[in-house]
């Protein structure tokens, strides 16, 4: 018996080490992806020039490309990828539904509706204004969904949340369609906004939502132990001393902040949040304390790689949202078919 117990103890430590190693590997991969994102594009920039541009910029052409375009774009991709990956993992955990993308809370449609509203009704033309409208719309929509989904005895449950989110999303989509059909200015902006892109004319306005994204990340990390207990069922979670309503509230707040700021900054790129948690779950299993960081890193890697490939293969003619699905979806389908999936 004692040897066996020691073995069990060892295996706990081994597993932790293995997961930590995996995390380090992902961080290295992310750094490589970020470096590629700075170096490759319409014009490839040698590594020495990248180095020069970052540490001793002197206003050369390469310095300007790197400093004004490539680095902001890479940072945006990094932030948005992490946010969407993390939000997706939380969303699927809270709704226990593999179909739940981070936009399910009504975030994506709320942001879309607000953007179109800002143009057609308020005549907003500044990108910075659109970003703020999108963020506000995302938060309001998700608050409404959460309120509707948790009315009544028992609070929010996976099924009521998912249905409330889908219903409000459809409602907002209907209203958005009405607005863009009635006003061509709305259509003109909406059709480009809808794809989701890391190429922005003003990176500063995208950066205004960064603080909210960081708050969302902190909430998400705080939420993972509670989500672990919720995965065992609400009874067990309560038995383990978890406050179920509070856990749901914090989790959904994190999702709203993360997805809202991501969507506001670069449009809806739902596919990352939908797919990455499935991949991460395949690696880490169902422990959200590991699953969430893995999903965040994988999300950022996936987004950056798709963006780089779009620039290299198609001269940036395809937005990252399109590259992502064209390359990512077949890979995802292959994965679903070949690997035994860990279910929710």
């Amino acid at each position: 018996m004692p040897e066996q117990s020691a073995a069990a103890g060892n295996s706990l430590a081994t597993r932790r080490r293995r997961r930590l190693t995996g995390l380090v590997v992902l961080v290295v991969a992310l750094l490589l992806a970020a470096l590629a994102s700075v170096a490759f594009g319409e014009r490839n920039i040698p590594l020495s020039a990248v180095w020069h541009a970052i540490f001793t910029p002197s206003g050369t052409e390469f310095d300007i490309i790197v400093g004004a375009l490539r680095i902001p774009r890479t940072l945006l991709g990094l932030a948005v990828g992490i946010a969407l990956g993390v939000a997706g993992a939380l969303m699927q955990g809270h709704t226990r539904n593999p179909l739940a993308d981070p936009g399910l809370l009504g975030v994506t449609q709320g942001a879309a509706f607000a953007v179109v509203l800002s143009i057609t009704v308020f005549g907003m033309t500044y990108v910075s204004g659109q970003v703020l409208f999108a963020f506000a719309g995302a938060l309001i929509a998700s608050a409404v969904v959460f309120a509707l989904g948790s009315v009544g005895r028992g609070g929010a449950t996976p099924v009521t949340l998912a249905l409330a989110g889908a219903t409000i999303s459809w409602l907002l989509l209907g209203l958005t369609s009405a607005l863009v059909l009635l006003d061509q200015r709305g259509m003109e902006v909406y059709r480009f906004w809808r794809i989701g892109s890391l190429a922005r004319s003003e990176y500063e306005s995208a950066a205004t939502v960064l603080p909210f994204l960081l708050v969302g990340l902190v909430l998400a990390v705080l939420n993972t132990p509670g989500l672990n207990t919720l995965a065992l069922g609400e009874d067990i979670a309560k038995g383990l001393g978890q406050r179920v309503r509070l856990t749901r509230f914090v989790g959904l707040g994190a999702i709203a902040l993360l997805t809202g700021s991501a969507v506001a900054a670069c449009g809806p790129i739902a596919f990352v949040g939908l797919v990455v948690p499935h991949i991460a779950r395949g690696i880490t299993g169902a422990d959200y304390r590991w699953l969430v960081p893995y999903a965040g890193l994988l999300g950022a890697i996936l987004l950056l790689v798709a963006d780089v490939l779009g620039r290299v293969l198609a001269a940036d003619r395809f937005e990252v949202g399109i590259m992502l699905t064209v390359l990512g979806a077949p890979a995802f389908i292959y994965l679903v078919r070949s690997v035994r999936l860990v279910r929710l």
Partner: peptide, 23 residues
């Protein structure tokens, strides 16, 4: 379960093709 996940993939490709066609 597998069908639902495959469906997500197909829908994502289709949706983004449509969004691209719109632009």
């Amino acid at each position: 379960y597998r069908m639902v996940l495959i469906g997500i993939g197909i829908a994502a490709v289709g949706a983004n093709l449509v969004f691209w066609l719109l632009t």
